[in-house]
């Protein structure tokens, strides 16, 4: 937030999250290595390292890519989103270990510079099956690297949110590269179709989740509000909004979150000042509307972050007539105090 930067913004929840990540990774590596050693006694230490780190990184990448749409489909998954960037940096670390070991194993022992060797040892760019799949992995790793080194909020501010978001959208390209790296790499040496099925299942799951989440939002945005009185639009019955939660309404292409807090309704602009997170998908914690993405907080009655923070969002007027919620889509300047509407 606007106070001084720290290296890693740990709090109790994030610490629990990180311990869970660490525990999961450790268990996975242990299981992978022991199962491989039992099934294939001939396996070398280098191969074990290369395979265990790569499969773990691919698994984590799937989790990371699933978190976004899962949260948009069901708020139960929001705790996963809270610290997604730590998961991302963890994934990069394992991908880097895999890339590092592989470059060392396959390219560093010769007399050519390992990075030159990576690109010149296979130049079958016109072939599909013999395509230099290592280059695909290298470029995916490069994208993950750029994302990992810019994961601190400092970069969001100084590269501008637009550039930052665009850079981080490249994760989708990286995912495509990773899938093809696996398909044209290790799969070409494997006879067992189970690996293809796993990759395909992962891709189908992610595609389905993203398309579902996208179409759900499209429906929400297409809703027409027709009942209008003195600038107020009828949006929903008052009891539909749960306590400490919000419903989002899209009027004239602007999204507004109507929050219920201590038996009153308040309306604020849905977009968080930090990274554009959807405030209406969060909840009220300690009396503050808390963004589900990174926990930025705003007071419901005036849209201001509690001191020492300085972020402000627009507020709106809301009223209740006969148990029905009416919303005025004309925004007040950011941080303007509004009385809210009491639920009887």
């Amino acid at each position: 937030m606007s106070a001084s930067y720290v290296a890693v913004g740990w709090n109790r929840q994030k610490k629990i999250y990180d311990w869970l990540i660490a525990g999961f990774c450790f268990t996975y590596l242990l299981l992978f290595i022991s199962v491989t050693l039992i099934v294939n006694e001939q396996v070398t230490f280098e191969t074990l390292l290369i395979r265990s780190t790569s499969t773990l990184a691919v698994l984590l990448l799937h989790v990371i890519l699933a978190i976004g749409p899962l949260c948009r489909l069901d708020k139960k998954f929001l705790p996963l989103l809270y610290n997604r960037r730590h998961l991302g940096v963890t994934m990069f670390t394992f991908a880097l270990a895999h890339g590092g070991f592989s470059i060392f194993q396959f390219h560093a022992l010769g007399n050519t510079n390992p990075f030159v060797s990576l690109f010149i040892s296979n130049t079958n760019f016109n072939s599909f099956a013999a395509f230099p799949f290592q280059a695909l992995g290298f470029f995916a790793l490069l994208i993950f690297f750029l994302m990992a080194i810019t994961s601190h909020d400092f970069w969001l501010h100084n590269l501008s949110p637009r550039v930052w978001k665009t850079l981080h959208m490249f994760v989708y390209l990286a995912y495509l590269l990773v899938v093809m790296h696996v398909m044209l790499g290790v799969i070409q040496y494997e006879n067992n179709p189970v690996f293809v099925i796993i990759i395909l299942a992962g891709a189908v799951t992610l595609i389905t989740l993203h398309l579902l989440a996208g179409s759900k939002e499209r429906k929400l945005d297409k809703r027409k509000f027709s009942l209008e009185q003195e600038g107020f639009m009828y949006v929903c019955p008052a009891e539909e909004i749960e306590d400490s939660r919000a419903k989002i309404f899209c009027i004239d292409k602007e999204r507004i979150a109507v929050y219920r807090h201590e038996n009153k309704l308040y309306a604020i602009h849905n977009v968080c000042k930090h990274q554009g997170g959807p405030l209406g998908e969060g909840k009220i914690l300690d009396g503050c509307i808390t963004c589900p993405w990174h926990g930025y907080q705003y007071l419901p009655h005036n849209g201001q972050s509690p001191p020492p923070f300085k972020e402000k969002v627009s507020t709106y007027d809301v009223k209740i007539i006969d148990g029905k919620v009416w919303l005025n889509p004309v925004p007040f300047p950011e941080g303007t105090e509004r009385p809210g509407a009491t639920i009887k």
Binding site: L176, V179, M180, I187, Q188, P193, V196, A203, L211
Partner: peptide
């Protein structure tokens, strides 16, 4: 993701066939 919905399965199947 609409584009990926086509590209990913095609890539995976082609990779498998190869």
């Amino acid at each position: 993701w609409t584009a990926w919905a086509i590209l990913l399965p095609v890539g995976i199947v082609l990779g498998w066939l190869a």
